[in-house]
Computed example of a mutant assay.
Amino acid sequence: MNRLEAKRRARVARKKRVRKKIRGTSQRPRLTVYKSLKHIYAQIIDDATGRTLVAASTVGRDLRGDLKATGNIEAARAVGLAIGRKALARDIDRVVFDRNGYLYHGKVKALAEAAREAGLRF
């Protein structure tokens, strides 16, 4: 197994371990993060109904024109602010944070802190 495959398997194992404990409800939905090398995505999901309530990403129209680059910490910060504003507009103020197996630093940390600044509590 090469290095990249080992890294991917470790992330998937962390993801499974965390998802055993984290569950989003209608009162407190789950804020999940996915990142690729070029983009970062965030969704707020109600696991009871299996529906995505709010989503924001660097691919979306509202952020695409404002960013110089889409795969850096500034882009993650913009996505965090956007998801926070959209959630508050839908009367969602408390969420459970699901880092999706990623380590809590860099882009993931920037997105979480920006979402907190926008008014989300977790």
Rank of each mutant, 00 (worst) to 15 (best):
S26L: 05
Q27N: 09
R28H: 05
R28W: 07
P29F: 00
R30N: 05
R30I: 03
R30Q: 05
R30T: 04
R30E: 00
L31H: 00
T32Y: 02
T32R: 03
V33Q: 02
Y34S: 06
Y34H: 12
Y34L: 13
Y34R: 05
K35I: 02
K35R: 09
K35L: 03
K35D: 02
L37N: 09
L37Y: 05
L37Q: 07
L37R: 04
L37M: 10
L37H: 06
L37T: 06
K38F: 06
K38S: 10
H39E: 12
H39F: 08
H39Y: 09
I40E: 00
I40H: 01
Y41S: 08
Y41D: 04
A42V: 08
A42F: 11
Q43P: 14
I44S: 05
I44N: 03
I44G: 01
I44F: 08
I44H: 02
I45C: 05
I45W: 11
I45T: 05
D47C: 10
D47G: 08
D47N: 11
D47E: 12
D47L: 08
A48D: 15
T49R: 13
G50I: 04
G50N: 08
G50Q: 08
G50M: 08
G50K: 13
G50C: 10
G50W: 11
G50R: 13
G50L: 08
R51P: 04
R51S: 14
R51W: 14
R51T: 12
R51K: 15
T52E: 14
T52I: 14
L53T: 11
L53H: 06
L53Q: 09
L53D: 03
V54N: 01
V54W: 00
V54Q: 02
A55H: 14
A55D: 13
A55Q: 15
A55Y: 15
A55N: 14
A55G: 14
A56Y: 03
A56H: 07
A56Q: 09
A56T: 08
A56R: 10
S57I: 01
S57K: 01
S57P: 01
S57W: 02
T58D: 04
V59Y: 08
V59Q: 11
